[in-house]
Design a binder for these strands. Structure first.
Lengths: 368, 368
DNA sequence: TTGTATGCGTTATCAC
DNA sequence: GTGATAACGCATACAA
């Protein structure tokens, strides 16, 4: 039982053909005659042969693996994305290597090494911060063309970027609150240098301006997408005077903990204050009341990014340089937003905002 | 800039030594004289050499990668575990390949292939269901010794298992409710054939028996750890008559959605019904009220499993066959459990239950 | 359509 | 302590 595993030579012997033929049967079955192909497959069956990846990789100078770089693997927001990436990639014969970009020491050099030592054919990075060290390594390994951004991105490098329309999402959020009569709207942001945080914040501010809303500086409070940040933000915002009647949180995690803290301090949501999140994590639909939020198509983001990378790995590099592929966002109205208590409705019907969300698959949001 | 990458031969040439020496400098620096070692490292520096993994793997018959098999990557419960595994493994020079065991078609064969084609040195499986197909492949590749279970497990195979003490967790939960005066306690289980679900359920029933509590069959409702299951379970349990005053949910996800549904139907938690979960996911501490739950040390589980696998990969296979390593569990008391409304306290102080939790690091549970 | 022969870049086995 | 050289298992250029 512990014989050395069968090699291509053994298969060739059993099938009565040359090793080259066996190899071809594996990689280009079409180029063989029906008869020999069958012979080879039979021999593979009887010998229990499996190709040795290391040998194949060495010979073909491919790795059959792609790297997915995740900022903080512990963040559940990424798990759905990772899952759909994994589906697409493994269905196409690629292994998925995951890497945490926030790891203590390693990450930076580790990623570079992956490319330089050829253990990876490409990369999807969910981390928008790409250092010039990494970029240099990519260039060096001639791998710059095999990298795509997903969710986050950096304009500094000429790479495709699969992302949600964060600006639209923020506008939908503001419009929704305005439509319900809110005029005093606060915002809890993502982490300081985060591109998503910036996009959402600037779109928030612009849209507020469009609606002629005044947004004092201290109505925009710094967060970091985390549960803890939401609770802290609540403490700060509830202490404001006058107090905002609506709050747009840049993540659902912050929105949920924001709401929890409001309750803890005796405020009711949405009666006393309306809260809208961003992401539509699964919990949003199962909270009480259900969290009004901007849905991101996490599965779609992962799938699109994986498909884009696959196309590039196949050499179907349609476009040069940077370009953007948007995954849909949509307003999901649940129970944490309502008209402010002492407000007059703006529009005839409580609907004063621009474009509603469209193009989003299966807008199911009610638990069974 | 697009010269072929430097090979070991180039380094040898620059350093004025043989390729064998360069190779040794990389793998066993001690066996070289100080002088030549330095020469080699300098040459590596100037050439920008990186070892070609495929070639090394082919020669050494190692892969430098381990597989982590996750049942449903989309489940955020696993992200913390995956994260700590990744930390340990990558710090020790191993790449982490993730695989979703619930993927449509692939998984089964894909996992087997990983071992048979040598692209992986070992595996940590978070999925307790190991088919005999997979086991056969492992045996065939002589890889049975390089597999460890984490969280879930199967007694069918002689493998180490890193897990929480699920029985203790369930007992702590029951004892806690009993200590508060509950006598009518229901349970929402995990998925049907899941080993964790079974352990928690049987320990629940046994402990109830110990406390001489009657548990009618319909007080144990089938769940599956998911948010949706918790909401559905609430519908069923709230319809019971007499209605249980306390509920032990086998996961925090179910507990949280259970509570949400209770509220939606006008019941207050913990006033009208007490709920205790299992896991202590991050959200538990930020819910309002905070979720009383049994904490699992997710980071510890991942770390221990990774360390155990590493030891095996190093050949330090201490024990033969199956053995268990427990990660600590602990009762985390927050706000979703309280004395039932019409109950008499059992003990002098509302404390009638056995052993409190111990040995758990940093029992912080309050948001800042 | 199939076979022959070479090389992918390392490490390991021997010598020295 | 160091150097020559033979595998490792496969894919492909070329020949047939």
């Amino acid at each position: 039982m512990q014989n050395p595993p069968p090699k291509i030579k053994d298969v060739a012997h059993v099938a009565g053909v040359s090793t080259a033929t066996v190899s071809r049967a594996l990689t280009q079955p079409d180029r063989l005659s029906e008869a020999t192909r069958q012979k080879v497959f039979d021999a593979i069956e009887t010998t229990g042969y499996r190709v040795n990846q290391a040998a194949r990789n060495l010979r073909t100078r491919r790795a059959g693996a792609v790297l997915v770089l995740v900022p903080n693997l512990g963040n559940p927001f990424f798990s759905a994305i990772l899952s759909s990436m994994n589906d697409v990639l493994s269905a196409n014969g690629y292994s998925v290597l995951v890497f945490d970009s926030q790891q203590p020491g390693a990450s930076e050099q580790a990623v570079a090494d992956c490319f330089l030592n050829g253990s990876v054919d490409g990369m999807i990075t969910l981390d928008g911060h790409m250092t010039s060290t990494t970029a240099k390594a990519l260039r060096n390994a001639n791998m710059m063309r095999n990298v795509v951004f997903c969710c986050e991105w950096s304009d500094q490098w000429p790479l495709p970027s699969i992302r949600s329309n964060n600006g639209l999402g923020a506008r939908l959020a503001v419009d929704h609150l305005v439509a319900q009569g809110h005029r005093k709207i606060a915002h809890v942001t993502g982490p300081a240098s985060n591109i998503l945080a910036e996009m959402r914040k600037s779109a928030f501010l612009q849209r507020c301006a469009t609606h002629k809303l005044d947004v004092p500086a201290d109505w925009v409070v710094q967060g970091d997408f985390s549960l803890m940040a939401g609770a802290q933000a609540a403490d700060r915002i509830l202490a404001l005077s006058p107090r905002p009647t609506g709050v747009f949180c840049a993540s659902d995690a912050m929105a949920l903990s924001f709401i929890a803290r409001c309750r803890q301090r005796g405020l009711r949501v949405p009666d006393d204050i309306s809260v809208i999140g961003f992401d539509d994590i699964e919990m949003a639909a199962y909270a009480e009341p259900g969290l009004t939020t901007i849905r991101q198509d996490r599965a779609g983001l992962g799938r699109l990014a994986a498909q884009e990378l696959l196309a590039r790995l196949r050499g179907e590099q349609k476009t040069e340089g940077a370009y953007v592929i948007y995954a849909p966002v949509a307003l999901i109205e649940r129970g944490t937003t309502a008209a402010p208590q002492n407000a007059t409705q703006p529009g005839a019907n409580g609907r004063g905002g621009p474009e509603p969300a469209t193009g989003f698959p299966e807008p199911v949001d009610k638990p069974a």
